[in-house]
């Protein structure tokens, strides 16, 4: 799961989940790069406040079911799976599914 965290909470070993670019959209540090002390120092020097990292937090089965139930409750209006609401619901449940722990 991707997560934005303040630069002060970044620890070496975390994986960069979104490339760092400069104001000309040039990639300075690519997505997937494992972060080192040096890199974190450089980000601090560049005055970057927060970065997007790959969090290894896995969702438990209980969390998954609770979130799924919340989504179901929001979609009470009548619609079919081809409609806009139908597509949003399928996309949301798909997103949730992809972050479920494998256990």
């Amino acid at each position: 799961m991707k997560e934005n965290i303040p630069i002060t909470d970044v620890k070496p070993g975390m994986l960069l989940a979104k490339a760092i670019t400069n104001d000309k959209d040039m990639t300075l540090c690519a997505e997937g790069t494992p972060l080192t002390e040096d890199l974190i120092d450089r980000f601090l020097q560049m005055e970057i406040d927060s970065i997007c990292i790959e969090s290894n937090k896995e969702m438990s089965q209980e969390e998954y079911l609770a979130l799924k139930e919340k989504i179901e409750k929001r979609f009470v209006a009548s619609y079919n799976s081809n409609s806009l609401l139908g597509k949003i619901k399928i996309a949301l449940l798909g997103h949730l599914e992809s972050h479920k722990g494998s256990s």
């Binding site: 929001r74 979609f75 209006a77």
Partner: peptide, 11 residues
């Protein structure tokens, strides 16, 4: 969590 209403087809 207020329920979502059916959106207007124009969307």
């Amino acid at each position: 969590d207020l329920p979502l209403e059916t959106p207007d087809p124009i969307i």
